[in-house]
Every structure is written in structure tokens, then in C-alpha cells.
């Protein structure tokens, strides 16, 4: 029972089971964060004064270590997956709100004016003009949120086997089987890279007007002025 894929029985999952669990615990919160971030970001775009306080609050929330978040939640949601997923949803929200706000704001005034002139109402203009143009920024935010979410699920192992692939880390220590920790780190990293790649693919599909993925840079001397890339890792 020392093999790389021999999962200790106390985890009660097969290797594939752990992967499924990990993806679920990591990605559902990102999805929830996105669904919450879209209206919140729209409010921030509409009411400019709202953005700085929202940004401040989210920065503070992001600085709260995940483990502390988990432990405090145990009292309310018990030692369950939900306890792991709530903080991850909050972190996703924190990454996505600025990404979406910056993305939606980057839509040029002329474009908006053109849409209005075509008779688009505010809702239709938002859904069909602003949101699609903001897609690259939103996906950039989603990539950061997804990758960090996948990485953070592992910490859930500290609150009683709620860390999916991270549970292998605790067992690696408990039974002194380093190969389980190697397995956990590699599998988690591969999952993160795959999800990241899928999101890049999604962007290419959703933004057919952009050059495919590769951001070609003009030779020195004809560099154009670009907007500063947003600080998505914030």
C-alpha cells in the first residue's frame, strides 16, 4: 500500500473521486462569486462613489487568511464542504468585481453612444455591448480566481478532511508517505493549469474579434500606447 495512487482508506474516496470533489469544491464558489460579482460590479459602474468603498472592503476580506475564515465558519456551517466553499466564493468575488468594473468601464463612450443610437435600452446595451466587450477582462479575473480557488481548497484538510486532494497532504504526514504529498501537489497543479487553459479557450471562442490568444507586439519604435493592464492579482 505504498503506491502513488494508493489513497488511504480514511479519505473514503478513490483518486478520481478526490479529483471530482476538488473540482466541485473549487469551481462552484467561483461560479457563485461570478453570479454575485456581475450585479455588484454593475452597481459600482452605475454609482461611481460606490467603487472605492467596495474596493476597500474587498481588499481587507482578501487579506483574511483562508484558514481563519474556515475556522470561524465551522460554528455556523459545521465541518462541511460549505465551510470551505464560502470563503472561496468571497475570494472569487473580491478578484472578479474589480476585473468586471474595469472591463465594463473600458468600453469606449462612442460605442455606447452608437448602441443607444441603434435604439438599445440600458439592459440590452449592457448584455449585448458592454458585457461582451468586457469578456477578456472578466476571463482574466476568472483565471486568477479559479487558479487560486483550486489551490486553496487544499487548506480545507485542516478542518477535518474537507480539503479533497489536500487531504492527501495530511495523510502524507500522518502515515509518513511523501508520495501522497507529491501526488496532491502535482494533481492540483495540473487541474489548475487545465482549468486555466479552458478559460483561455473560452475567451478565444467568446471574442472572435480579437486575435487568437497570442498578443503580438509590434516591433520597437511602433509600439502603441496601451491601457495599463489591470492589477488582477489584487
Amino acid at each position: 500500500m505504498n503506491g502513488f495512487f494508493d489513497i488511504p482508506s480514511d479519505l473514503q474516496h478513490s483518486y478520481q473521486g478526490l479529483i471530482g470533489l476538488h473540482l466541485r469544491e473549487a469551481l462552484l464558489p467561483v461560479l457563485a462569486g461570478l453570479l454575485l460579482a456581475l450585479p455588484l460590479a454593475q452597481l459600482c459602474v452605475r454609482f461611481r462613489w460606490l467603487y472605492p468603498p467596495v474596493l476597500g472592503a474587498t481588499t481587507i476580506l482578501y487579506a483574511v487568511p483562508s484558514l481563519a475564515f474556515f475556522v470561524v465558519l465551522i460554528d455556523y456551517t459545521g465541518q462541511t464542504e460549505l465551510t470551505v466553499m464560502i470563503p472561496l466564493a468571497v475570494y472569487s468575488l473580491v478578484v472578479l468585481v474589480p476585473a468586471i468594473v474595469d472591463g465594463v468601464r473600458s468600453v469606449p463612450q462612442e460605442t455606447l453612444a452608437a448602441a443607444t443610437a441603434m435604439g438599445f435600452g440600458p439592459v440590452r446595451r449592457y448584455l449585448q455591448v458592454q458585457l461582451p466587450i468586457a469578456v477578456p477582462a472578466i476571463i482574466a479575473g476568472l483565471r486568477v480566481a479559479t487558479v487560486s480557488s483550486i489551490s486553496l481548497v487544499s487548506v480545507g484538510t485542516l478542518i477535518g478532511n474537507q480539503g479533497a486532494l489536500g487531504n492527501l497532504l495530511a495523510d502524507a504526514q500522518k502515515y509518513d508517505r511523501p508520495e501522497l504529498a507529491v501526488n496532491s501537489v502535482i494533481t492540483t497543479a495540473v487541474l489548475a493549469i487545465l482549468c486555466d487553459a479552458l478559460l483561455v479557450l473560452l475567451r478565444v471562442v467568446l471574442t472572435p474579434w480579437m486575435p487568437n490568444g497570442t498578443r503580438r507586439r509590434p516591433k520597437t519604435g511602433v509600439r502603441q500606447r496601451r491601457p495599463a493592464p489591470q492589477d488582477v492579482t489584487r
Binding site: H13, G17, G20, R24, L31
Partner: peptide
């Protein structure tokens, strides 16, 4: 979302 919700680690 549907995939994830259904993705609950079959063997528990």
C-alpha cells in the same frame, strides 16, 4: 454548473 453539481465523487 450542472456538471460540477453532479460531479460528487461517485464513491461516497
Amino acid at each position: 454548473a450542472a456538471l460540477l453539481a453532479g460531479c460528487s465523487s461517485g464513491d461516497t
